[in-house]
């Protein structure tokens, strides 16, 4: 799965995307985030569970308990400030 990062999250992680092979046990967005926290110190430090951020699967806004299904891309970003 491709994980994409935007705005201050992208800047602080110092990367805009990464490819990640997720284990079978990872079923939902929250599972994927926990997996990243467990395997990536920078991610754990920058995006602890209490951080306010939003997620999208293949261009659709989703919730943390949404199943990953066959999605190819998980995007992680701060609350939006366009317009």
């Amino acid at each position: 799965m491709i994980i994409r990062y935007f705005a201050w999250i992208r800047e602080r992680l110092n990367r805009d995307q990464q490819e990640l092979a997720l284990p079978e046990s990872v079923q939902t967005v929250a599972d994927a985030l926990d997996h990243l926290r467990a395997t990536d110190e920078d991610f754990a430090a920058i995006l602890p569970p209490e951080t306010v951020f939003r997620v999208a699967l293949d261009d659709e806004l989703v919730e943390l308990d949404t199943p990953l299904g066959n999605a190819k891309e998980l995007s992680i970003f701060p609350p939006m400030t366009g317009g």
Binding site: F6, W8, F77, P78, M80, T81, G82, G83
Partner: peptide, 10 residues
Amino acid sequence: LKTDAPFWKK
């Protein structure tokens, strides 16, 4: 658009 379109202002 303000809250649900993915744009971020710096």
